[in-house]
Computed example of a mutant assay.
Amino acid sequence: MTTRPFRFGVVAGNAPGGESWTALARRAERLGYATLLVPDTLGTFAPFPSLAAAAAVTTTLRLGTYVLSAPNRTPGQVAWEANTLRTLSDGRFELGLGAGRPGAEADTSRLGLLHGTPSERVSRLAETIDAVEGVPILVAAAGPRALRLAARKADIVTLAMPVQASEDQLAAKLDELYELAADRFPQLEINANLAAVGEDLPPWLLRQIGGEPRGTGILTGSVEEMAETLRKRRDRLGVSYVSINADYMEAFAPVVERLTGT
């Protein structure tokens, strides 16, 4: 479905201190990961300053938000922050945006802001995209409004699907995006996130998925088996950009080495 080469990102949002955080960024770069991605929750580091710190100690690693919740900032504020980080990172910044994950209204409320209705949040997302210039835009989308916006405006699309979503469910959502994007679809880079790899899954994830290691958000098997699964997924679904929970950065590194650029 796509001839795009593979690239890989690490999703991280916490560390004991500055030295640990910058060491993680340097390690991700050495292991061959293309991007360091920071979520937007009040339980993790603030994305922009943490990415700026990572930019200062790396040279090739790209930096991204994964993803900013549009209700938490004005479009002008996002544009200001994004332009600054683009400059400080010498063009290595990628802006990930979304209308707000499930439960994100609690963070918005703590910030003293209004979360808004789904329609209002997607409108804010559209305004934010229009306010930003000069950086690649990743949009997290699942519902019809966000998918329509991603089809028109995004450079990269990640589908906001649950960890336990099957390949058929992911394919159905991508079919929707394909219809909406039409001639633009070949320009879109498709991202999928892995919450875990291997058999040793954390208790919170096992509870979420009902105790069985299933779904496109989990990858199991040997290095070659995991690599082959991702090759087949790219052939079928066009997923060429894969992000991984930082807890599994080291375990997944052999797959990154095997597939990056192929």
Rank of each mutant, 00 (worst) to 15 (best):
T3K: 15
F8M: 05
V11P: 04
A12L: 08
N14K: 15
G17P: 05
G18A: 13
S20L: 00
W21I: 04
A25G: 02
R27P: 08
L31E: 13
Y33G: 03
T41R: 11
T41I: 02
P47V: 04
F48Q: 03
A55Q: 10
A55C: 06
A55N: 07
T59K: 12
L61C: 04
P71L: 04
N72S: 08
R73D: 06
P75V: 04
Q77P: 00
A79L: 07
A82M: 01
A82G: 01
N83A: 09
T84V: 11
T87R: 15
D90E: 15
F93I: 12
F93S: 06
E94Y: 13
L95M: 08
G98S: 05
G103I: 02
A104L: 01
A106Q: 14
T108Q: 03
T108C: 08
L111V: 07
G112Q: 01
G116R: 09
R121S: 08
R121C: 05
S123L: 14
R124A: 11
I137T: 02
R145A: 13
R145P: 02
R145N: 08
L147D: 09
D155I: 10
A160Q: 15
A165G: 02
E167R: 15
K173Y: 09
Y178N: 13
L180R: 13
F185Q: 12
P186M: 00
L188N: 06
L188W: 05
I190R: 11
G198S: 02
E199I: 02
D200E: 13
P203W: 00
R207M: 11
I209M: 11
I218C: 08
L219Y: 10
G221T: 03
S222W: 08
R236D: 09
V239W: 01
I244T: 15
A246Q: 10
D247M: 14
A253K: 06
L259Q: 00
T262S: 11
